[in-house]
Simulated scan of single mutants.
Amino acid sequence: MCKSGDVVHYDPNGWDHGAGYRGLATDSLSDPATLLGLMAEHLDGLLAAEADRRHTAAAALRAVMTEQVLRDGETSFWDPAFE
């Protein structure tokens, strides 16, 4: 965590060639807790057997995460979770 309160993503595999810093993950420690709560709310859909239901749940989760926590995509840290 930085002095500003930002939580940054650092990849230890990149330390030796200047590629460790991976950008902003979130701008406060409370955001990951909120994100985990939002994930729990969508868990049934995310774990559904039907691919369409999983896709719909993931899209809904991403929309609410972006709106409530990630402030309209100011960070790409979470993108791989939805791929």
Score class of each variant (00 low, 15 high):
1 M>S: 12
1 M>L: 10
3 K>I: 08
3 K>L: 12
5 G>I: 08
6 D>R: 13
7 V>D: 03
7 V>L: 15
8 V>W: 09
8 V>Y: 07
8 V>L: 12
9 H>M: 11
9 H>Q: 11
9 H>G: 00
9 H>K: 11
12 P>M: 10
12 P>Q: 09
13 N>T: 13
13 N>Q: 12
14 G>C: 05
15 W>C: 03
15 W>Y: 12
16 D>P: 00
17 H>Y: 15
17 H>Q: 06
18 G>Y: 14
18 G>M: 11
20 G>H: 11
21 Y>T: 02
21 Y>Q: 05
22 R>M: 11
22 R>V: 01
23 G>H: 11
23 G>Y: 13
24 L>Q: 09
24 L>D: 05
24 L>W: 09
25 A>G: 01
25 A>W: 11
26 T>W: 14
26 T>E: 06
26 T>I: 00
27 D>T: 09
28 S>I: 06
29 L>N: 05
29 L>P: 01
29 L>Q: 07
31 D>P: 00
31 D>L: 12
32 P>A: 06
33 A>E: 13
33 A>D: 10
33 A>F: 13
33 A>V: 15
34 T>F: 03
35 L>V: 13
38 L>P: 02
38 L>C: 03
38 L>D: 04
39 M>C: 10
40 A>L: 09
40 A>K: 14
40 A>Q: 13
41 E>D: 15
42 H>R: 11
42 H>Y: 10
43 L>R: 15
44 D>M: 08
44 D>P: 04
45 G>V: 09
45 G>S: 10
45 G>T: 11
46 L>M: 13
46 L>T: 04
47 L>A: 14
48 A>E: 07
48 A>L: 05
49 A>L: 07
49 A>Q: 13
49 A>P: 01
49 A>I: 06
49 A>N: 07
50 E>K: 15
50 E>P: 00
51 A>G: 02
52 D>R: 14
55 H>A: 15
55 H>G: 02
56 T>W: 00
56 T>V: 08
56 T>N: 06
57 A>C: 06
57 A>H: 08
58 A>Y: 08
58 A>G: 06
59 A>W: 01
59 A>G: 03
59 A>Y: 02
60 A>I: 01
61 L>D: 04
61 L>R: 10
62 R>H: 10
62 R>F: 09
62 R>S: 02
62 R>A: 06
63 A>P: 00
63 A>C: 01
63 A>W: 04
64 V>D: 07
64 V>G: 00
65 M>N: 02
65 M>R: 05
66 T>Y: 07
66 T>N: 15
67 E>D: 12
67 E>P: 00
67 E>V: 00
68 Q>S: 11
68 Q>N: 10
69 V>A: 08
69 V>G: 05
70 L>P: 00
70 L>A: 04
70 L>V: 04
70 L>W: 10
71 R>C: 01
72 D>W: 13
72 D>S: 14
72 D>A: 14
73 G>P: 01
73 G>C: 03
74 E>K: 15
75 T>C: 08
76 S>Y: 02
76 S>N: 08
77 F>G: 00
77 F>L: 03
78 W>M: 14
78 W>E: 04
78 W>Q: 08
79 D>H: 06
79 D>M: 02
79 D>V: 10
79 D>P: 01
80 P>I: 07
81 A>Q: 09
81 A>V: 14
81 A>C: 10
82 F>W: 12
82 F>E: 04
83 E>N: 11
83 E>G: 11
